[in-house]
Amino acid sequence: MAAAIYSLYIINKSGGLIFYKDCGTKGRMDTNDSLRVASLWHSMHAISQQLSPVNGCSGIELLEADTFDLHCFQSLPGTKFFVVCEPGTPHMESLLRYIYELYTDYVLKNPFYEIEMPIRCELFDINLTQAVQSDRVALLGR
């Protein structure tokens, strides 16, 4: 049985949640909670960069807890993608990369999307839903 993805977040440069998706039955959150998680993570990520003893640290990439793993990917312009999943779920880095790719294709190339604003793009949703299906995720790990 493949490990499950709980939820997926995209936050903009200033820490605002611009996309949230529930992927399973566990760890569901209402709108307020998801906004809170997003801005909390944004600040923690920034603090971790400052506190890190290593020079040029790019922030937390993986947070491991007893009940979940949180994988984070930050793109060069500062948009953060993070996914909350069952502990030990494989291929999450490549999934985040792939989601970033979908974002550049179906969100940034869409003339009706305003940058930094919440994402409401049908094509992005369709392709994302396909990507997070567990059998597809396994393919990304090749």
């Binding site: 294709d105 190339k109 869409n110 003339p111 009706f112 409401r120 793009c121 049908e122 094509l123």
Partner: peptide, 14 residues
């Protein structure tokens, strides 16, 4: 290919 029409634009097609 990469365009999603917002709901409020109705039947508009690029």
């Amino acid at each position: 290919r990469f365009i999603s029409i917002p709901k409020d634009m109705g039947t508009f097609n690029c």
